[in-house]
Design a protein around this nucleic acid. Structure first.
Lengths: 155, 155
DNA sequence: GATTGACTTGAAGTTAACTTCAACTTGCAC
DNA sequence: GTGCAAGTTGAAGTTAACTTCAAGTCAATC
């Protein structure tokens, strides 16, 4: 609890790989919390880095900030989240990743079929049939987004 | 080339699973072409359905419209694209899908490690380390986007 | 105690991929 | 030949996830 444990916004930005503006945005959106100095400047506890690591990973997996927010809301506020807290959350991802991998494999194999038959037919091709898309991947499923491509905010 | 082969915008929207506004948008962006009636209304040839199927599949795989546009630009304008034309394009996707699957598997396995060690450490966890993200997945890689979740435009 | 670089806020801007709107025109059925 | 559903356009609106800006404040150093 030494004050030296606290980090400024630019320090966190640097170490966490996010732009300061993103940190402020995340705070407004309720994903992050910062204490304040007497003068009103943000000071972050070390735990924020783990939180940011989690946020980045979640974004890479395709979760929206809103989803991440609600997942993070499951963390205990009363104490510093421990290994078990994080593990519980992470475990849920495993299933999600498995689903995503399966969906992609299905997509690839469907594509093989298409290459084989050269069809890309609207009626049959599972790559693109609109109803198939809904049926195959379900309403809640999401996949790795362009976010994964973004360069983590640099200088 | 019978005029009866031509479809109206709402017919294509219905059959292709896109909203009419999306079709007009795609046309503005150079992904689609439509002939016009004397009065200026759009009429689509049957081939547009295959093109739309391709666009949908590409979107599901995470390509931006810009990328799709440039891929589609590789199709011959002088003749109706044939089986071989589409196959050539589709083949390139196979590699892309393989890459995406590999990336996801790496992510999942990294996550296993994290669950095992409970770390989610910024320094070590390949799930979230900013530089790892860039290094592991490369600048050009993209993954399945929220687009896959969207319901294909309905009534 | 003055300098100055880092920090603050709210508001507005950005991008992709569309959708919605208003005002007007076509084209097919009767 | 008329009625009206369906089509047309350009402009503006939408959403997520931020960034940028302007105008001003803080805090660490000299």
């Amino acid at each position: 609890m030494k004050p030296t444990d606290l980090m400024t916004v630019s320090e966190v930005a640097q170490r966490g790989g996010f732009a300061p503006s993103a940190l402020r945005y995340y705070e407004r959106e309720g994903l992050l919390h910062a204490t304040r100095t007497a003068g009103g400047q943000r000071r972050y506890e070390r735990g924020v880095l783990r939180r940011l690591a989690f946020i980045r990973a979640a974004r890479n997996v395709g979760l929206s900030l809103e989803e991440i927010r609600s997942v993070l809301a499951g963390l205990p506020e009363s104490r510093t989240p421990n290994k078990a807290d994080w593990t519980k959350i992470s475990r849920a991802w495993h299933g999600r990743l498995d689903e995503q991998i399966q969906a992609l494999v299905a997509l690839r194999d469907g594509l093989n079929t298409c290459i084989g038959c050269g069809c890309l037919s609207l009626a049959r091709c599972r790559m693109s049939n609109p109803s198939d898309v809904a049926a195959t991947y379900g309403a809640g499923a999401r996949y790795l987004p362009p976010a994964a491509r973004r360069t983590p905010a640099g200088p």
